[in-house]
């Protein structure tokens, strides 16, 4: 059985550098969410650090559009699994460099452009289980803030979550390794055999 690493957020440069593909991690601390609209906005409008209410330096950005219920006591997260990361491939490298992110979390992995940016700044990509939204919501202990709720709506807003023992696997590391890339290469060879000579 693989050893599980406990990782505190925001990620330190040392922690990020120490993570390798295949590592199972339990994340605790604060992270922010962001998906299609947040990425488009960050890259097109370049808001300064002072314009964003959360500190993105060293932060983990989670590709997630949660189901949130507003109660008298505040916001309650009902379901919060990952969304497909590849949709923001065209933006992510710029976002990582500009805002100093040290981690991305989502599902399905990302492409070469993001992999190079991770290596350049010393950041990692975590994959968590797609569709496991109720289970993962149970690892979110607090909604600590939200940005762009009115403009983007609850699905696309940037949420600040406090999480505890949130399970994830490092699938792209800061040393240029990607499990997604490896598996795609192996499956492509199988595909060529199965589909006949093409």
């Amino acid at each position: 059985m693989v050893e599980v690493k406990r990782v505190g957020l925001p990620l330190s440069a040392e922690d990020a550098a120490g993570l390798r593909v295949g590592d199972m991690a339990l994340l605790s601390g604060r992270l922010v969410t962001g998906r299609d609209r947040v990425h488009k906005y960050l890259v097109e409008k370049h808001p300064g650090k002072g314009d964003i209410p959360f500190d993105l330096e060293g932060a983990v950005l989670y590709h997630c559009g949660p189901v949130i219920k507003k109660t008298d006591a505040g916001y309650q997260v009902l379901a919060a699994g990952p969304t497909t990361s590849m949709r923001v491939e065209m933006y992510e490298a710029d976002v990582i460099r500009q805002y100093g992110l040290r981690g991305i979390m989502g599902k399905g992995g990302m492409g070469d452009k993001t992999l190079r940016a991770l290596q350049e700044v010393g950041a990692v990509y975590f994959q968590t289980t797609g569709g496991a939204a109720a289970y993962l919501a149970d690892m979110i202990t607090e909604v600590a803030g939200v940005w762009k709720l009115e403009e983007f709506g609850p699905t696309e807003a940037m949420w600040l979550f406090e999480i505890r023992d949130f399970p994830a696997v490092v699938t792209m590391d800061s040393h240029g390794n990607s499990i997604h890339k490896e598996i795609e290469a192996v499956s492509f060879e199988k595909f060529r055999t199965l589909a006949g000579k093409i």
Binding site: G65, T129, G131, A132, Y135
Partner: peptide
């Protein structure tokens, strides 16, 4: 991964929450 999926299915069903946020 499959164990997490099955645990999620159980939690969602028991609490009537969406099993996937999408």
């Amino acid at each position: 991964t499959l164990s997490v999926i099955l645990e999620n299915v159980k939690r969602a069903r028991d609490t009537f929450r969406p099993l996937c946020q999408d």
